[in-house]
C-alpha cells in the first residue's frame, strides 16, 4: 500500500467518525459567521427535531415499524418538564432525565401489547395514543393550561449560567444532538442495530437467525420514545412556552415526513430531512399557502422515485453510475 492508499484507507475506515467530527467543527464555528439570533434559532430548532427524528428513524427505518404518534411522546416530554420545573421548581436537567425515564416506561407499557401487532395495528395504536394525549392537553386545563398553552417555563442552566439566548442554546443543543447522532450511528453498526436491520427486511428470517424480534422492537421503541421526550423537554426550555397544537397528529406526520424524505434507516438522512423540512418555510415565501401541498408532494415524489429516501437513493444511483462507467472502461 502506498502512502496515498494508506491515507485513503484511513479515511474510508474512519469515515463515520470523521464526518461527525467535521459536522462538530462546522457547528462549533457556525456562530462566528452567523450571529443573527433568528437564524441561530432556526438551527437550534433543527437540533431539537433532529434528536426526535433520530429516534423515530431507528424505529421506522431499522425496526421497520410504523409510528404515527411520536408527537405524543414529544408532548409528554415537553409538558412533563414544564410542570416539574415551572410548577414544582425542579432542576431542569433532573426533570429532563426523570421525565425521559417515565416516558420510556410509558412507551414500554404501550409497546409490550402493541408491538405484537404488525403494520396497520401499530399505526392505529400510535395514532390513538397521540390523539388521547392531545385531547388531554387541551381538556385538562388546570394542569396543562388548555388550548392557550403553558407559559413561564424556566430556561436551562449550565453551571449556574442561564441558557436564555439563541447563542447559548446553540452550544447546548448541538453537542447533545451530535452525541445522540454518534450513539445512533454506533448503534446501527452494533449487533443490535444489524439485528434490527434484518428485522426490518424480514421478521421471520431475522427470528430464525436468533434475533429476539419482539424484544428488539420494544427496546428500540422505548429508545425512540425516550429521545422524543428529551427533544420535547429541550423544546419546552428553548421556547419557555408550549402549546398543544405543536403536538397534534399532524406534527407526528411531519416528523415521519422528515424521516422518510431523508431515508428510512439512514441516520444522516434524518439530519438532511429534518433540516429540509424546518428550513423550507424560511426560504420559500409562497410556502405558507402551499405548505401542505409541498410537504405532500415531496413525500410522494421521494417515495415514488427513491423509496429508500433521497440520500440513500442518490447515493445508490451514484454508485451504480460509477460501476457502469468502470464496466464500460474495462471493455
Amino acid at each position: 500500500m502506498s502512502a496515498k492508499d494508506k491515507i485513503l484507507y484511513f479515511i474510508w475506515l474512519h469515515r463515520t467518525g470523521l464526518t461527525v467530527g467535521a459536522l462538530g467543527l462546522v457547528l462549533g464555528f457556525y456562530p462566528l459567521f452567523q450571529d443573527n439570533p433568528y437564524f441561530l434559532g432556526i438551527s437550534n430548532l433543527i437540533g431539537i427535531y433532529l434528536i426526535v427524528t433520530i429516534g423515530l428513524n431507528l424505529f421506522i427505518g431499522y425496526a421497520g415499524q410504523i409510528s404515527l404518534g411520536h408527537a405524543g411522546f414529544v408532548a409528554l416530554g415537553a409538558y412533563g418538564s414544564a410542570i416539574l420545573t415551572a410548577d414544582l421548581g425542579w432542576n431542569p436537567w433532573l426533570a429532563l432525565i426523570i421525565v425521559a425515564l417515565l416516558v420510556g416506561l410509558a412507551a414500554l407499557l404501550v409497546g409490550i401489547p402493541t408491538l405484537r401487532l404488525s403494520g396497520h395495528y401499530l399505526a392505529m395504536a400510535t395514532l390513538g395514543f397521540n390523539i388521547v394525549i392531545y385531547t388531554i392537553l387541551i381538556q385538562w386545563d388546570k394542569i396543562t393550561g388548555g388550548p392557550s398553552g403553558f407559559a413561564g417555563i424556566p430556561p436551562l442552566s449550565v453551571f449556574g449560567m442561564p441558557i436564555d439566548d439563541e447563542l447559548r442554546f446553540h452550544y447546548v443543543i448541538w453537542p447533545l444532538a451530535i452525541i445522540f447522532l454518534t450513539l445512533a450511528l454506533n448503534l446501527v453498526r452494533s449487533g443490535l442495530g444489524l439485528g434490527l436491520a434484518a428485522l426490518a427486511q424480514n421478521e421471520t428470517a431475522a427470528s430464525a437467525l436468533g434475533i429476539k424480534v419482539s424484544r428488539a422492537k420494544i427496546q428500540v421503541f422505548v429508545l425512540s420514545a425516550v429521545l422524543a421526550s428529551v427533544g420535547g423537554s429541550l423544546f419546552a426550555h428553548c421556547f419557555t412556552f408550549v402549546n398543544p397544537h405543536s403536538f397534534s397528529i399532524f406534527t407526528s406526520l411531519e416528523l415521519v415526513t422528515m424521516v422518510v424524505i431523508g431515508g428510512l434507516g439512514s441516520v444522516w438522512g434524518s439530519l438532511f430531512g429534518t433540516a429540509l423540512i424546518v428550513l423550507m418555510p424560511e426560504y420559500l415565501e409562497f410556502f405558507e399557502t402551499y405548505k401542505d401541498i409541498i410537504h405532500g408532494l415531496i413525500l410522494v415524489v421521494v417515495l415514488t422515485v427513491f423509496p429508500q429516501g433521497l440520500i440513500s437513493g442518490l447515493r445508490d444511483m451514484a454508485r451504480l453510475k460509477i460501476l457502469q462507467r468502470r464496466d464500460i472502461a474495462q471493455h
Partner: peptide, 18 residues
C-alpha cells in the same frame, strides 16, 4: 414494500387536504 406504500398514501392525503 407495504411500509413505503402506506407512507405514500399519507403523502397523498396531505396533498389532497392542501
Amino acid at each position: 414494500n407495504h411500509l413505503v406504500l402506506i407512507f405514500l398514501t399519507i403523502g397523498l392525503s396531505i396533498i389532497l387536504r392542501g
